[in-house]
Design a protein around this nucleic acid. Structure first.
Lengths: 126, 126
DNA sequence: CAGTATCCCGTGCGATACTG
DNA sequence: CAGTATCGCACGGGATACTG
């Protein structure tokens, strides 16, 4: 099974680039992180992902559903209850995305420091 | 000494979120991938990263330099020659980002398929 | 509770022209 | 060669109000 590299993100015309782009939009990585431990309701996700609005969260989840990353299960009860769960495909994303998230958390201090010293010498007044 | 979890991307006010945001902008992952094997000149990067313009590539590289991810070495020759290289900090990003890139390339087909079947039933005419 | 509908805006990004 | 300057816009994303 050699699968001769049909996809290449460095090629602007390659669909894999838009896939990568989608994985790295504002909320997808956070939603994947929240759904990683198991299914969650819409409100739980919104509660955990600080700062997201219902509209944008819906857009994100729809888009993830469309791409086969999450399953959406709507219970026709009143009030409604909707559960979201990572698909097997979505679960394969948890590792990579979690690595990125933990990188950001672990190295945020260094990045902030680098930024400060860059600004101190390059944007120096005078 | 409780330095436990000083950073949390789920917190909208946490700086780690903006760091994550930066890591996942349009060109940073691709540039890191190109610089992973070793230093490269500006033109080489531009040549490899399909579709990027000089202006935006400069912005990306400056921003990465500011955040301590790349070193920029400009030779005062004529014509000028500028080499970019990942810093030790930047090198720690290669793994996580490469995982994401290879995920996109490996699963692009599945995502495209999921998209097609979603559109076929949900956006079905009639 | 889990969305939709509507209006609105910042900015990331692109095209083009120019320069040391 | 490696940028910078300028202009402009699509679009991702946000605030608010409303609904089944």
């Amino acid at each position: 099974m050699d699968a001769v590299r049909p996809f290449d993100v460095l090629d602007p015309a390659c669909p894999s680039r838009s896939v990568l782009r989608h994985l790295t939009d504002r909320w997808t990585p956070l939603v994947v992180g929240v759904l990683a431990p198991g299914p969650a309701r819409f409100g739980e996700i919104r509660d955990q992902v600080g700062g997201v609005t219902a509209k944008v969260l819906t857009q994100t989840l729809r888009s993830m559903e469309r791409d086969g990353l999450v399953d959406r299960r709507a219970l026709p009860t009143m009030p409604p209850r909707v559960d979201y769960e990572l698909t097997p495909l979505g679960r394969t994303l948890v590792g990579p995305l979690d690595a990125l998230r933990s990188w950001a958390e672990r190295h945020a201090g260094e990045v902030l420091g680098a930024r400060a010293s860059y600004d101190a010498q390059d944007g120096a007044p005078g």
